[in-house]
Design a protein around this nucleic acid. Sequence first.
DNA 1: TAAGTTATTCTACATTTGTAGAAACACATT
DNA 2: AATGTGTTTCTACAAATGTAGAATAACTTA
Lengths: 123, 123
Amino acid sequence: MNLPKSEEQLMLVLWKLKKAFMKDIVEAYPEPKPANTTIATLLKRLQDKKAVGFTKYGSVREYHPLIAKDDYFSSQMSGAIKNFFNDSVAQFASFFTSKDNLTDEQLEELRKIVDEQIKARKK
Amino acid sequence: MNLPKSEEQLMLVLWKLKKAFMKDIVEAYPEPKPANTTIATLLKRLQDKKAVGFTKYGSVREYHPLIAKDDYFSSQMSGAIKNFFNDSVAQFASFFTSKDNLTDEQLEELRKIVDEQIKARKK
DNA sequence: TAAGTTATTCTACATTTGTAGAAACACATT
DNA sequence: AATGTGTTTCTACAAATGTAGAATAACTTA
């Protein structure tokens, strides 16, 4: 699933809210908010794509994501890694850790996380 | 700079070749190759966007990227990290190292890279 | 219940993207 | 010089995207 920017934006809002009524979505939208009907259109398109679903409370709809943020992001990442680093995670990591991409602190943080992950898997 | 998929594809080819004549680009294109004129169109659009430039050898043009792959990728990443992890590299790293994103080997590899980077910076 | 408010769908339209034929141009070869 | 070959630009057009007004449905409240 690869969503256009505008729909991705709406998904971000919905992922944050987890579930929401129309007004909640509008409210949570970052400035500059698009017209109300614009959001509605995006919502509609996302429903067509099965990316968003809803539960009916009477005649009111409460929307919720049908795809997980993690999954979505994960697949975006894989794509990027495949394209830009011919599928080599090492190359990707290397890129990521070098240059000005991370501060010293963030790098230390990353090591900690990696270490913990390795430890966790060892068991 | 945010390029559409098709143009990104052409950039990938050009980044790999570093510089190339039309025929080199066509040749290097992954299957299924689009029509020749399709590539030409993309090339044109990329020139309009100042993403690709060329040097004239007589009447022949040798094309080359005007934007660095690293820079392009870097900005794509920042965008993604900002959106999906509210700007937290730690959150990103955490996501990246957990789940099925990396095999055990890759994880060890990553640690090595991080360690080396930390060491390199210490001096 | 009439009027206001909110949500939803329809319709619309400009722009961007994906794709490529047709035409024009420059060069190589017969 | 006539023809073929590769390059580049023009033109074209369908599909996707970004944006939103108009119409309609449903609910709230005076």
